[in-house]
Simulated assay, not measured.
Amino acid sequence: MAANDLVKKAKRGNEKAFAELMQGEKHKLYRMAYLYVKNEDDALDVVQETIYKAYISIKKLKEPDYFSTWLTRILIHTALDFIKKNKLTVPFSEMEEFFPTRGDRLIDERLDLAEAIEQLEERYKTVIILRYFNDLSIKQIADCLNCPEGTVKTNLHRAINKLKLDIREAYIQ
Rank of each mutant, 00 (worst) to 15 (best):
Q140V: 04
R102V: 15
E94R: 15
E169G: 03
A142T: 01
A159Y: 00
R105T: 14
K162Y: 00
N134K: 13
V127A: 03
N155A: 02
T151W: 03
T89D: 08
H157G: 01
Q119D: 10
A142S: 14
A170H: 09
N161S: 09
L120A: 02
I167V: 15
E94K: 13
E122I: 08
D108F: 13
I138W: 10
F99S: 10
K87L: 05
R105Q: 15
I128Q: 07
A170R: 09
A142Q: 09
N86P: 01
K153G: 01
E149R: 14
I128T: 10
K153A: 06
F133C: 14
L113H: 04
K164M: 06
E96R: 03
V152T: 09
P148C: 13
P100H: 11
R102N: 08
R102E: 12
E149D: 11
I107Q: 12
I128G: 07
K153C: 03
F133N: 09
L156C: 03
M95C: 07
L156E: 10
R158D: 03
A114P: 10
I172W: 05
K162P: 03
Y171I: 06
I172Y: 06
A142W: 06
I160P: 00
R110A: 12
C144H: 00
E115K: 13
T154L: 13
L120T: 05
T89M: 07
D166G: 04
I160V: 05
E94Q: 15
T101F: 01
M95L: 13
G103N: 07
D104V: 07
K162A: 05
T154G: 00
K85L: 08
R168I: 13
A114T: 02
L156G: 06
E122V: 13
A114V: 07
N86Q: 07
L106E: 12
P100N: 11
E121C: 00
E121T: 00
E96T: 12
K139Q: 08
S137V: 08
V127P: 02
D166L: 11
L163Q: 03
N134M: 14
I138S: 07
L106D: 11
N146F: 11
I141H: 00
T151K: 14
L106V: 08
Q119Y: 00
